[in-house]
Amino acid sequence: MSIAAALGDVQRDNLQGSPQPQRRGHFVPYLLMLPGLLWLGVFFVVPLVTLFMMSLQTAVPGGEIGEYEQTFHFANYVDVLTDPSYYTPLFRSFIYAACATVLALLIGYPLAYFIAFKSGRFRNLFLIMVIAPFFVSFILRTIAWRQILADEGPVVAAMKWAGFFSDGIGGIYPSAIAVVLGLTYNFLPFMTLPIYASLERVDPKLVEAAGDLYAPGFTGFRKVTLPLSMPGVVAGTLLTFIPATGDYVNAALLGNSKNTMIGNRIDYAFLNTNDYPTAAVLSFVLMACILAVVLVYVRRVGTEDLL
C-alpha cells in the first residue's frame, strides 16, 4: 500500500543511500525543486516565523479585540505557562497521547505481526482492511464512536449486562477513556503500517537460523524479530504520538470540559476569542514539548535497541 511503501521508504532511506547514479548539471535539480520548495517556504516556513512573531505581540492599548502590536513581549510565554487553564490541558494532551500511543502499540504490533507472518495469501486483503477506515471521513468515524459509547449504545448495554455498571451510574461517553479510545482508534493504522513494513522485511531465514542456534520461539522473537522491527516501532509511535498530542477533534467530540486538550485551547483562542498571541504561544510551546519528548525518545530507543 502506498502509505506503507512510503513509510518503508523513509526507513530504508535512513539506513542506506540511494543507489542511483550521480548526474551532472549544477542547476537542473534546483530548477526542478524550485516551485515546490518555494511553496513550502512561503506557506510553511514563513508562517512559522509569523506565528513566532505573533507570540510576542501585545494588545494595542485602547484598541479593538483582535488588534495587536509587535512589542517582543517574551513575558507572554511566562503568563501562559503559569496559567493552570493552559498548562493543565498541555499536560493532559501528553498523558492522553502517551496512553493512546501505548494502546495503539499493544494493538498494532500483534496485528502487524499477524499480517506479516500468519496471513498467508490474504495478506493484501488484510492490509486493505487496515487502511479501509481512512476511506470514511475521520470526523464521521469519531462521531460513530460517540454513538457506540453513548449511554444507550451497545458497549454500555453489554457492560451493564455483564454487571460492570449498575443502572444510572457510570458511562463511557463523555470521558477521558472515550477520548483516549478515539485517539487510539484514529491513529492505529499509522502505528500498524510502519511496523508491518519493517516486519515484512525481516528475512524468515534469520528467524530460522536463530531456531537452529537454540533460540526458538520466544527467544528468537526477542533476539531477532523484535530488534529488526524497531525502526517500524519508532516510526509508528512517532506517527501516532505527534498527531495525537495536537489533535482536538477527539477531545471535542468524545470528551467534556474536563478533557480539553491543548489543541482545543489553541483553536478556541484563535477562532473564538481572537487571542492570537496566546494561541501562538501555545502552538510554540506544544511544538517545543513535542520536539523535546521525541528527541529524548529517539535517543533512548536509538542507542539501546537500534544500534
Binding site: 510553511f44 498527531p243 495536537g246
Partner: peptide, 12 residues
Amino acid sequence: PEVVLGSSLLAL
C-alpha cells in the same frame, strides 16, 4: 502537528 500548521498559516 496539524494544529500548528493550521494556526501558523492563519497567522500569515
